[in-house]
Write a protein that binds this DNA or RNA. Structure first.
Lengths: 161, 161
DNA sequence: GCGCATTCAATGCACAAGCAATTAATGCGA
DNA sequence: TCGCATTAATTGCTTGTGCATTGAATGCGC
């Protein structure tokens, strides 16, 4: 690989780091102060909610801890504690797995479903506003309902009259 | 914004999270066990090294703490402690700023320059191998000198005979 | 039926990161 | 010159994360 390729990869990595820091920072702040949730917490709730909605029978949306950990890029121990936090808040419930009594099934409670539904618009709004900032300025994204991004310049082009 | 747009943004965000987790995980492991450096530590050393090399006079590569913090996406307190760690290892030196005695200049030591130079190939190799994995499999990237990515399938296409 | 390696989740421990409070130095205005 | 707001960096405290370990349960071989 030549120097140009290397520079390109490094630049790409820095851009990735910058975008990750920016978006996850705003997301953390917004989700935390508006809904009392962290980014990882929301992510876990979302996986559980998705599984539930893609499943006909209610009460089927169960997940093993390790399975969730893989999806949200956390270690098994981190997820164990995260689940404990969510359980303390009443957003999820642990259920013994009878087939394999080492395993634990995690599922959303009604309260958990509600909190996730409440937080989703904020989550989407932050992503729309900050993930592709250039699109926002070009008028390709909505005015971010649910948040008021402070970095939107006063004269920036928006959709509408 | 319609559902399709929203889904796209969410998918893009998840892809970003996945790539960030993957690459920074491997990078952390490799840099740590081969050179005793964390990702953030390396990033700071790199900024200092770049500033030095782009500067004619030796000894001019000084940085304010806050300036470094912005570049590596850390809070000033985090960077303050990180600098302290690097200083304890003898990789950087704090220098009082005489013009403004609140400020602190941070600069690389010779040992710091050496460690950064040693670690750079590992850093670049990990990025090349993991940042754009599909390019690696397509033979557009080198066989990642310095690391042996375990997730390269035995039969995957590589450059060479 | 009895070990024994394996697997799943929880816990002890160490550490890095952020927020808030603190200390030190600057510069501006009365 | 004397406050006083402002800025830079450090420190106290809390929290989330990963690694390694532990404890429980499984199933495979004999």
């Amino acid at each position: 690989m030549n120097d140009t390729d290397t520079d390109f990869v490094v630049m790409a990595w820095r851009a990735l780091l910058a975008r990750h820091a920016e978006v996850s920072g705003v997301l953390e702040r917004e989700l935390s102060e508006r809904h009392g949730l962290g980014v990882s917490e929301f992510e876990v709730l979302e996986r559980l909610a998705e599984a539930r909605s893609s499943c006909q029978e209610p009460g089927e949306a169960k997940f093993r801890v390790q399975g969730l950990a893989d999806q949200v890029h956390l270690s098994q121990s981190a997820l164990s504690r995260l689940i404990a936090r969510l359980e303390r808040e009443g957003l999820v419930a642990r259920a013994l797995c009878e087939a394999d009594r080492r395993g634990v099934f995690v599922q959303l409670t009604e309260e958990g479903r509600r909190r996730h539904a409440e937080a989703t618009p904020t989550h989407r709004a932050v992503l729309s506003a900050h993930l592709f900032p250039h699109l926002v300025d070009a008028g390709c994204a909505p005015p971010a309902e649910g948040t008021a991004p402070e970095n939107a310049a006063p004269g920036s082009v928006r959709r509408g009259p």
